Simulated scan of single mutants.
Amino acid sequence: MRAWVHGLCIAAGIAAPVALTFWFTSDYGPRSKAHYAAVEESQATPKEVVMAFEKMGIDERRPKEAVERYFSPDVIDHDPNVAGDRQSIIDHLSALDWDKAGPTRTIKHVIAEGDMVAVHHHLVRQPGTKGIAAVDMFRVKEGKIVEHWSVLQPLPETSPNRHGAF
């Protein structure tokens, strides 16, 4: 056999596995970054899903992206301030004044059991006010929030309770 045929066979034998490796690990192949991100999210615990939503949606002030990423398309929302679907959640959170001082919140407690997660937090929608004691409850299934409830308690200017709301 000729030397160039041997050289071509050796090059093909080296190039084929390298090409396949690049294909399977590239952004275009079946094991792309998007694939691994989806697998990672579906394996996250319910608490990790909710806390990732809280971080992106509230702390980083990206509510539309957070809802689209962490809420199921057919989510059921029991919050009386929204229509109850994913788009109404996006509309409600996007209407908050994120560009200025906007709402601030301090998480006080997070409780997770099974597929349920409760976040107890102090929410101040208008700077200079006492704010609200809030509990948001989430039900998570397969890495997505599928149900949400809100319980809001306005904080009075004065209270006889020496322990406070938190």
Score class of each variant (00 low, 15 high):
residue 101 A to E: 15
residue 128 G to W: 01
residue 46 P to K: 12
residue 140 V to T: 04
residue 42 S to K: 09
residue 90 I to P: 13
residue 122 H to D: 02
residue 62 R to F: 04
residue 74 D to Q: 05
residue 97 D to P: 08
residue 77 D to Q: 14
residue 116 M to G: 04
residue 18 V to Q: 09
residue 58 I to H: 13
residue 108 K to Q: 11
residue 108 K to E: 12
residue 51 M to V: 04
residue 40 E to K: 12
residue 107 I to M: 12
residue 25 T to H: 07
residue 36 Y to D: 05
residue 36 Y to A: 08
residue 45 T to A: 10
residue 105 R to W: 11
residue 162 R to I: 13
residue 57 G to F: 01
residue 92 H to E: 04
residue 11 A to Y: 00
residue 138 F to I: 10
residue 154 P to F: 07
residue 136 D to R: 14
residue 137 M to Y: 12
residue 155 L to V: 09
residue 105 R to C: 04
residue 56 M to W: 08
residue 21 T to C: 09
residue 31 R to E: 03
residue 108 K to C: 10
residue 136 D to A: 14
residue 119 V to T: 10
residue 99 D to W: 01
residue 24 F to P: 00
residue 143 G to W: 00
residue 82 V to N: 14
residue 13 G to N: 14
residue 127 P to Q: 12
residue 76 I to F: 03
residue 107 I to Y: 09
residue 104 T to G: 02
residue 65 E to Y: 10
residue 37 A to S: 03
residue 112 A to Y: 06
residue 65 E to L: 02
residue 150 S to N: 11
residue 11 A to V: 12
residue 29 G to W: 01
residue 106 T to C: 05
residue 146 V to P: 11
residue 128 G to I: 02
residue 122 H to S: 04
residue 80 P to N: 05
residue 102 G to R: 06
residue 81 N to Y: 05
residue 151 V to E: 13
residue 60 E to T: 05
residue 79 D to M: 14
residue 94 S to V: 02
residue 152 L to Q: 14
residue 125 R to F: 09
residue 134 A to G: 06
residue 97 D to Q: 12
residue 158 T to R: 01
residue 111 I to P: 03
residue 89 I to P: 10
residue 164 G to I: 12
residue 87 Q to L: 09
residue 121 H to R: 03
residue 63 P to M: 13
residue 147 E to H: 14
residue 103 P to I: 08
residue 161 N to C: 08
residue 111 I to E: 10
residue 26 S to Y: 01
residue 97 D to N: 15
residue 32 S to V: 02
residue 72 S to A: 12
residue 14 I to P: 02
residue 114 G to D: 10
residue 86 R to S: 02
residue 127 P to K: 08
residue 116 M to K: 10
residue 46 P to V: 04
residue 100 K to S: 15
residue 76 I to P: 02
residue 33 K to H: 07
residue 71 F to R: 00
residue 78 H to P: 02
residue 96 L to F: 02
residue 89 I to E: 14
residue 147 E to P: 14
residue 50 V to C: 07
residue 85 D to Q: 12
residue 91 D to S: 03
residue 133 A to I: 07
residue 157 E to S: 09
residue 137 M to Q: 13
residue 139 R to E: 08
residue 64 K to A: 15
residue 68 E to H: 13
residue 79 D to V: 13
residue 166 F to W: 15
residue 152 L to G: 11
residue 116 M to N: 06
